[in-house]
Design a protein around this nucleic acid. Structure first.
Lengths: 109, 109
DNA sequence: ATCGTGCATTCCTTGACGGGAATATAACCG
DNA sequence: CGGTTATATTCCCGTCAAGGAATGCACGAT
């Protein structure tokens, strides 16, 4: 699993949705399929990507596979983010302020 | 700019490298080309993706275009991350601990 | 052993992405 | 205006990711 695999995995909206679902609680595939409105194969493929990125783990429970979040990769993201925090979070936001002179339209959900 | 555009922009290693370069200071395109070892057109295309994701802004300086980071989208990432922090950062890491019983291999840089 | 359930994998097609080469555009200089 | 520098855009191509349909596989029940 590379760093890029992690970013790529999260670049897909469906996969972010799955990750959000798994934040609430571990779930078997069937539940994820239903919640996401994806087909079962498509869901399995997304889960594979998440697995290979290290974001989720599987526990086998009879015929079901219960997926759960693995905190580590998300913590890695947090670590990646750390150097950028000063841009908006610390007193050195003079840089951000300088940028804001030009234009300021934060736009995301 | 969608949320997905932001993740997609950062999913590319070259673009993350560019973002890291711009964290140090704003830079004209030529400097980025040289630092990344990419061709000039390729660099311009990556910069376009970053621009459309809202991650960078351009200031025109004579014939040069000086790119600088925009903190807002990265702050948005940070906000996205927030709900996950409890997974490894708070006292409720019993969940993480339960996962660690299965296997524990944090592997990323 | 056989069947049914839950999930994974493969095949196929389509659309997006990335790189190189060439070209276009814009700004400055004389 | 013509030329040069700095950057953006286009065209073409190879590669890769995503979705649907069909199939394969593992486990449990009977």
């Amino acid at each position: 699993m590379s760093d890029t695999a992690l970013w790529t995995a999260l670049a897909d909206p469906h996969r972010r949705a799955i990750v959000a679902l798994l934040l609430e609680r571990p779930r078997p595939v069937g539940e994820i399929v239903e919640a996401c409105g994806l087909s079962q194969p498509s869901t399995s493929k997304h889960l594979k990507v998440l697995r290979e990125a290290g974001l989720v783990r599987v526990r086998q429970d009879a015929q079901r596979r219960v997926y759960a979040l693995d905190p580590a990769p998300i913590a890695a993201l947090d670590a990646w983010l750390a150097p950028y925090r000063r841009l908006w979070n610390s007193s050195l936001d003079a840089l951000g302020r300088r940028l804001d002179e030009t234009d300021a339209t934060p736009d995301d959900t």
